[in-house]
Amino acid sequence: MTGGQAKGEKRVWEWIRKAKSAPPDAKAEIWVLYDAAVLSVMEVFKRVDELVECALPEAAYAIAAEIGVAVAEAVLTGALRSSGEDGSISLGKLTDEIASLFQPWFFLQLMDRLEVRSKMWYAKAEHEGEGK
C-alpha cells in the first residue's frame, strides 16, 4: 500500500467513525434525511413515468431509488478514498473507483447515459444563454 492509499483509507475510516459516533439528535436527523432522499428519488421516477403513461408498480421505483442512493453513497466512499489531505479529489482515481463498482458492460451503459444527459444539458444551457 502506498502512502497516498494509506491516507485515503484513513479518511474513509474517519468518515465512517464520525457518522457512527454522531450525537443522537444528529443521527436521527441523518436517518430522516436519508429516508427523504430515497422517497424523493422514488416519487420522481414514478412521476416521470406517470407523465408519459408508462408507470410500473410502486415496488420497482422503491428498489430503483434504494439502489440509486446506495450507489451514490458507495461513490462517496470512493471519493474519500481518492481524496488528498487538502480535501481535493483525483478525478482519475475516482473514475477508476466508480468503474470498479460495476461490471464493465454496465459501466459503459452508465457512462453513455451520463454523456447523453450532459450533452442535453449543455444544449439546454446554450439555448437558455441565447435567449437572454
Binding site: E14, W15, K18, A19, A22, A26, E29, I30, L33, Y34, V41, F45, D49, L56, A60, Y61, I63, A64, A65, I67, G68, V69, A70, V71, A72, E73, V75, L76, A79, L80, S83, G87, S88, I89, L94, I98, F106, Q109, L110, R113, L114, R117
Partner: peptide, 29 residues
C-alpha cells in the same frame, strides 16, 4: 449528512455522486 458529522467534502463531489446515483437508479428501471 456529512456536514452534520463535521466531515463534508467539496461541493463538486456531491454533484458527481448524485449524478451517478440517479443514473444508476434510472438504469435499473
Amino acid at each position: 449528512m456529512d456536514e452534520l458529522v463535521g466531515h463534508a467534502l467539496d461541493d463538486d463531489i456531491y454533484a458527481i455522486v448524485a449524478e451517478i446515483g440517479m443514473a444508476a437508479a434510472e438504469a435499473t428501471l
